[in-house]
Design a protein around this nucleic acid. Structure first.
Lengths: 107, 107
DNA sequence: CATTTCCGTAAGCCATAGCTTACCGTAAGC
DNA sequence: GCTTACGGTAAGCTATGGCTTACGGAAATG
């Protein structure tokens, strides 16, 4: 149920913005905060949540912390989504066949 | 930004349980509520949220409403995730090459 | 050392999300 | 027509999540 944490983490708009900023490459905290409508501590808190969800990783670099995307969490989410998609589609097909078989006429 | 609504909708655990119950096929509201630790009105509210996010569809069937999974919302989410995945991976590769090029020695 | 930059954490505030109970409309069954 | 199943909505409560300001610690800089 790792995907659950990822979903919760990505549900918040500003947290998602933080995350999406990392798409272009690793960033320091203050760099990430620049341009966002919230304070730097807020960004720190978001990064903590993202990290606990396995969506980002961080490394120390002198006095600053550089955050980057961690494929782990994103992968788990993708896996869940794909499975779900397949199963849902299968059930959908099955439903159609069932309707086709025993009379669909009796509205 | 349709995927945003889907993320918010799927972030809540019980709402996700409602949604996952539909994987096995269309269900009525009271049937969905049976077995869940919340009241039927709560399930109704969750279904409303899921519907607004494009994740489920509903049709009337006599006095009951049958809900089913709507591929729309799930598809949008999948699309976003896949794009994100590709871009993140590309940036990751780029980062490695950059490190390899100009000296990585000066830790 | 003193100072400055960078960042995480604590405390506290406020809006909102999720739940319950209560109520009302609508379609079927007798 | 009554009654009964079904389900959407309103009102209200409470917990929690995200934000801010304030603080403290650690590494670079002089």
């Amino acid at each position: 149920m790792a995907y659950g944490n990822a979903l919760v983490a990505l549900a918040d708009p500003t947290r998602r913005r933080v995350f999406e900023r990392l798409k272009s490459g690793p960033q320091s905290v203050s760099r990430l905060a620049r341009g966002l409508p919230v304070s730097r501590p807020a960004v720190s808190q978001h990064l903590k949540a993202l990290k606990e969800a396995g969506l980002v990783a961080d490394r120390a670099e002198g006095t600053r912390r550089v955050y980057s995307i961690d494929p782990e969490g994103l992968g788990a989410l993708r896996k869940w989504l794909d499975q779900f998609w397949d199963q849902a589609l299968a059930a959908f097909q099955e439903e159609i066949e069932r309707e086709a078989k025993h009379g669909k006429d009796r509205k």
